[in-house]
């Protein structure tokens, strides 16, 4: 078989695969549909270039394959053609870059009404903290972390007292309300990633990183760790429930605040000492 045919079939196969693939992205469940749009755009432009270049190659292979005695063209340079190609490429690239930068600008600027969520990662699990009534998260310190203070909240900080602590890898989010994910790690790098939300960012020990999204489809989603963090990396999962307003409120009510936790611990302490006295 002429090699050109096989190359042609490879290109054709790629296109058909793309059209009929059962494997494709999950339905977007956040405001970042715009990321899908940038991907689609890149697909059209990039895919077009790929097909064009490869088909041109295949054409050349058919048309200009070796014939004894024939001479190739001798033309070292074609300034005009090179210029056209350079500018066309530059334009194409700019057309891809511009939307990318616009969306990135949205990505790094968090809306004012976003709920802040402290996502704390360790080897190998997650836990979450939501601001209480005051809407503010208390500040934290890794060295404060212990059984009585699982988030390392600084006790002197009044903002921390009413923080809602979720010592579980399951978190609920309110539908159609932006959230700002504040990532924190106590040991190594991690990354809180839900494919359907599209967004992700590494959690880096020593600093707090962030990103935001607005869930817009109620349902259950899986959290995957997307930054290698040691042998347990592949098992570092979690779950997210996106709930409507009412369900979310109910859920929130059931959660414990930091003061609750302190009170409970004091109670335990108290009964312990009482027991000891007896």
């Amino acid at each position: 078989m002429h090699p050109g045919i096989i190359f042609f079939l490879v290109i054709l196969g790629s296109v058909l695969f793309h059209i009929f693939t059962p494997w494709y992205w999950t339905d977007v469940a956040s405001n970042w549909g715009s990321m899908d749009d940038t991907i689609t755009l890149t697909f059209w432009v990039g895919g077009g270039v790929f097909i064009a270049v490869c088909l041109f190659m295949v054409y050349c292979v058919f048309k200009f394959s070796y014939k004894e005695g024939r001479r190739a063209e001798y033309k070292p340079e074609d300034k005009k053609l090179e210029k056209i190609l350079t500018w066309a490429t530059t334009l194409g690239v700019a057309a891809l870059l511009a939307p990318g930068l616009i969306v990135w600008n949205q990505y790094i600027n968090v809306p004012k009404n976003a709920i802040h969520i402290d996502v704390m990662a360790w080897q190998w699990g997650w836990q979450y903290r939501l601001p209480g009534e005051d809407g503010k998260l208390g500040s934290t310190k890794i060295k404060n972390i212990n059984d009585n203070n699982p988030f390392g909240i600084i006790l002197e900080d009044p903002n921390g007292k009413d923080d809602i602590l979720i010592q579980s890898d399951v978190i609920h989010l309110k539908n159609n309300r932006p959230v700002k994910i504040l990532l924190r790690s106590v040991d190594v790098l991690h990354n809180w990633y839900v494919p359907q939300f599209r967004a992700k960012m590494d959690a880096v020990p020593g600093v707090v990183t962030y990103y935001w999204f607005e869930p817009n489809k109620a349902g259950e989603y899986e959290v995957l760790c997307a930054e290698y963090c040691g042998v347990g990396h592949y098992g570092m999962r979690g779950r997210v429930f996106v709930k409507n307003e009412e369900d979310y409120k109910n859920w929130l009510q059931e959660q414990e605040t930091f003061s609750d936790l302190i009170a409970k611990q004091e109670e335990i302490e108290f009964s312990k000492t009482k027991l000891a006295k007896k």
């Binding site: 890149t42 790929f50 891809l96 990318g100 990505y107 930054e227």
Partner: peptide
């Protein structure tokens, strides 16, 4: 090279990086 343009373009990279 084309998929490189996906990954080089910040926003497009966000959902795809580390996958």
């Amino acid at each position: 090279g084309i998929t490189g343009i996906f990954l080089g373009n910040v926003t497009v990279d966000v959902p795809l990086s580390d996958t």
